[in-house]
Design a protein around this nucleic acid. Structure first.
Length: 463
RNA sequence: GGCGGCGUGGCCGAGUGGUUAGGCAGGGGCCUGCAAAGCCCCGUACUCCGGUUCGAAUCCGGACGCCGCCUCCA
């Protein structure tokens, strides 16, 4: 079973499952007020890889990731664009799923929307009020953090030190500056729901507690998200569940940032590249490879250089896929180890990848092992071990599929003129007219093709 | 102020108390009509200063530099 760093315990430990053979994961999804950026891309890719791997290993993964479709920023954006909150949320959510599809991120098992769970959130806030863990002020309902014994545990900080670092609050009436909003009272023109404690809308921290418990049940296995959600968002989710004596996530995992230069990429800093822009200009698989080859908890640098590096690296994989005519696995469908043959020389490869990934999702190690296997397979084939090489190659394809990295083995569709030029060149070579052959190769190159001569004739591929 | 992280070869980026990370780029060679792909070989490394140790880039202490969270944020 996989071992993951648990942010709550501060150590790598086995992911203990509530139900044998089944994993229940909750991932905090996007607030759809703007285009997704590179950071969201990493977020989606990291947890997609985890999910695919667990599935590959035969577990039934219930992967829930929400969409926050009501929030201050959506309201602000709607006002700015003179449109409705629904329209802002819908268009950005569409953009999100388009980007996810391009990245090869499989859709979650469930995608709850905050606005569909308002009744449940109201019920939860009511319970908290009844327990006097929540209190009402002029502008809404607040959660009293002092009522939770271990508040701050996830952040690794005491209540006192958190309080010391807290900035000056707008609402001085709060019992503690750390108290957070459960419900915001209605303001004119804003989306509003009726509630016993006043018309208004939910605060951000309640939706994830409600939806995770509703869809995954108490004591679900893993709650994950970006490091920036650890505090206050995840701390606050935990606090609410704890106040209600409901068993919450048993394991917490957080991934690191995408960096721009020496700074975190974030919307508030404005230093972000949208996923849409990236995907328009590069092979989406390059970004997945870039993410895979560094550890999920480390920061990654995404620059034109690192992307180009990953693209060239991908080229080695694709050349391998062409050589062995490998099928492009991965995509919406999730691979399972049981559907593949890991006998013979492939068994050790599978084991190596397994131990790498089970050790806190060590994808860089796994990728290195895959590149090792690619070299070994090429050597075997050069040596004439066709059978062994083919077996290894299929195992490599299956494991890349398990990581969601799609191969590009199929040859590009060749237009008639180019195909014609290639045929002419083959003829010129056969006739020993190498000057003409080189001229035709140059012409093909101008048209964007690389020609490779093999034992069974030449093939064309896109540059 | 509190808490946490990082500093590796031309670049990216892992890992480990002594034995090859991996990729990209570069040099040499094999193969090829020449290429491409593939294969073989090669170089430069662990911020600095102390300490522990037979041995540290890896453990401990200190210094310097950098980053993040403590406010919305993947």
């Amino acid at each position: 079973m996989i071992h993951l760093y648990d942010s709550l315990e501060g150590e790598v430990r086995e992911l203990a499952l509530r139900d044998e053979g089944r994993v229940a994961i909750y991932l905090c999804g996007p607030t759809v007020y703007d285009l997704p950026h590179l950071g969201h891309g990493r977020h989606a890719l990291v947890w997609d890889v985890l999910r695919r791997w667990l599935t590959f290993e035969g577990l039934e993964v219930n992967f829930v990731s929400n969409v926050t479709d009501i929030d201050d920023k959506i309201i602000a954006r709607a006002a700015l664009e003179e449109t409705s909150e629904e329209a802002v949320a819908a268009s950005n959510e569409d953009e999100w799923w388009r980007a996810m599809e391009a990245l090869g991120v499989a859709p979650p098992t469930h995608t709850p929307h905050a606005t569909a769970f308002v009744a449940e959130m109201i019920a939860l806030i009511n319970e908290l009020l009844a327990l006097d863990v929540a209190y009402q002020l002029d502008d809404g309902v607040y959660f009293d953090v002092s009522r939770v014994g271990d508040y701050g545990r996830l952040s690794g900080q005491s209540l006192e030190s958190l309080r010391a670092g807290a900035r000056v609050e707008a609402n001085e009436a709060k019992r503690s500056p750390l108290d957070f909003t459960l419900w915001k009272n209605a303001k004119p023109g804003e989306p509003t729901w009726e509630a016993p404690f006043g018309a208004g809308r939910p605060g951000w921290h309640t939706e994830c507690v409600v939806m995770s418990l509703a869809l995954l049940g108490e004591g679900f296995d893993l709650h994950c998200g970006g490091l920036d959600l650890k505090f206050p968002h995840h701390e606050n989710e935990r606090a609410q569940a704890s106040a209600l004596s409901r068993a919450f996530a048993t394991h917490w995992a957080h991934h690191g940032w995408v960096m721009v230069g020496e700074e975190k990429m974030s919307k508030s800093l404005g230093n972000f590249t949208s996923l849409t822009d990236l995907l328009a200009s590069t092979d989406p698989r390059a970004y997945r490879l870039l993410v895979l080859r560094s550890h999920y908890r480390s920061p990654i640098e995404v620059t034109p250089e690192t992307i180009a590096d990953a693209e060239r690296s991908l080229e080695r994989i694709d050349a391998f896929a062409r050589r062995f005519s490998l099928a492009p696995l991965a995509g919406e469908r999730m691979e399972r180890a049981s559907d593949h043959d890991f006998s013979g020389p492939a068994a050790m490869l599978h084991t190596r990848i397994q131990s790498a990934l089970e050790d806190d999702l060590d994808t860089p190690q796994a990728i290195a092992k895959i590149f090792d296997a690619i070299s070994q397979t090429n050597v075997a084939a050069d040596r004439g071990d066709v059978r062994g090489a083919a077996q290894m190659a299929r195992a490599v394809a299956a494991l890349l599929g398990a990581l969601g990295l799609r191969l590009h083995a199929s040859l590009d569709e060749v237009d008639e003129t180019s195909a014609d030029l290639a045929t002419k060149r083959d003829g010129a070579r056969a006739a020993g007219d190498f000057a003409e052959a080189d001229r035709l190769r140059e012409e093909l190159s101008q048209r964007g093709w690389v020609i490779e001569d093999g034992p069974h004739g030449s093939t064309l591929r896109r540059t």
